[in-house]
Design a protein around this nucleic acid. Structure first.
Length: 358
DNA sequence: GAGGCGTGGCT
DNA sequence: TAGCCAAGCCT
């Protein structure tokens, strides 16, 4: 797979030399502790370093060891994860912490093959931990590495297809050195993160531009090839902030939908925007509530963007009279301000609560 | 194999 | 603005 003209160009040596001079002193690179490395890798999945770093520090303060994380309540873990997104990472991470304690005496397995059996660890994360913490010679191929390999070696197959992944994996396997594979992997990732960046890379100062396919043919913009186009789904959410005596009704999200495990308000989803309280006259819960309270619209409309969805959100404020008795379904309850503070919530809900002074 | 899953930054 | 992207994984 490695092209003939790469013979004698000292690709690894030059990459490593670049890395030693240019890499960022990230906290999780200062350790060999697999727990800390695992924690950082989960946090950094599909997440920028700048966004993930404060969370890494928070988690390490709250849960210094895998035993501390295993002993925590899932709700508290999700609360600490709040704002980082892709919440299944937090749930899987917590599950895996418990498994490592229970099945492995608190010690992470030391090979990528074993690590990849754990929840939340795919091929990339397992290889990253195995090479960083244990020095196993396996290639850790993340988005950065796909980009670097596709540009330098001119690989034009779709990095998201199974066939494409195989091609990249084959090449990566040939490139991985037996000596210090962990640093090699870090170097490939870091090179992609700060030199061979996705948009407008500064190729003039690139130390590898003399051997780069994309630079030679001006194809930086075309590589890597990613075929998938995502469709954005539009949704209309009507939330009811139901209030009585300074407490608010919250509801845990349990379905296969977004924000599983987080708390929001009573929700009616519609196919079109609903703008009048009368639009909810079919909803028995709301109708019954309105016999005991007053509904007002929170005028600001919110558009909350997720990668695959665009949420058009309208909030309604329902003030229940002080003495009214409210019969709540089992999945809803009133919470005080202090209690709500400790519930994990989507950013949208957290923002709304702040704006109404809660 | 394709769809689903958050949030924030950048252009 | 609207779209793309970021240390991916699960179903």
């Amino acid at each position: 797979m490695i092209p003939d003209h790469f013979e004698g160009v000292h690709f690894n040596k030059r990459l490593k030399s670049w890395y030693l001079k240019n890499h960022r002193p990230l906290l999780w690179r200062q350790t060999n502790d697999p727990y800390k490395i695992w924690l950082s890798e989960i946090i950094l999945q599909q997440t920028r370093v700048a966004q993930g770093t404060p969370y890494y520090e928070k988690f390490l303060l709250h849960y210094p060891t895998v035993f501390d994380l295993a002993n925590a309540d899932e709700r508290d873990v999700l609360r600490l994860w709040q704002g980082l997104g892709y919440y299944s990472r937090a749930r899987n991470m917590h599950f895996t912490a418990r498994q490592v304690v229970k099945d492995f005496d608190g010690k992470f397995p030391s090979t990528a093959a074993q690590l990849s059996k754990l929840k939340g660890l795919g091929a990339y994360t397992a290889s990253a931990i195995a090479s960083f913490a244990y020095g196993e010679a396996v290639a850790a191929i993340d988005g950065n590495v796909y980009r670097v390999m596709s540009r330098i070696f001119g690989i034009q197959s779709d990095m998201l297809s199974n066939e494409g992944k195989k091609e990249f994996a084959t090449l990566a396997k040939e490139l991985i050195p037996a000596d210090d594979p962990g640093t090699y992997n870090q170097a490939m990732i870091e090179f992609g993160a700060i030199q061979c960046v996705p948009v407008s890379p500064n190729c003039i100062i690139c130390p590898l531009n003399d051997i780069c396919f994309a630079f030679e043919f001006g194809m930086q913009k075309e590589l890597p090839v990613k075929a998938k186009k995502l469709k954005v789904k539009h949704r209309f959410l009507n939330y009811f902030v139901i209030n009585q005596n300074g407490r608010i009704i919250m509801k845990e999200r349990t379905g296969k939908d977004i924000w599983k495990g987080l708390f929001d308000f009573y929700l009616i989803e519609s196919q079109t925007p609903l703008t009048s309280p009368e639009d909810f006259s079919e909803d028995k819960f709301i109708i019954n509530l309105l016999k005991k309270g007053i509904i007002t619209e929170i005028p600001e409309l919110y558009t909350h963007r997720l990668t695959h969805q665009r949420l058009n959100v309208r909030f309604w404020w329902i003030e229940i009279s002080e003495s009214a008795a409210i019969d709540l379904p089992a999945d809803m309850a009133f919470y005080t301000r202090d209690e709500i503070e400790f519930l994990p919530k989507p950013i949208l809900i957290d923002t709304l609560l702040k704006e109404v002074g809660f």
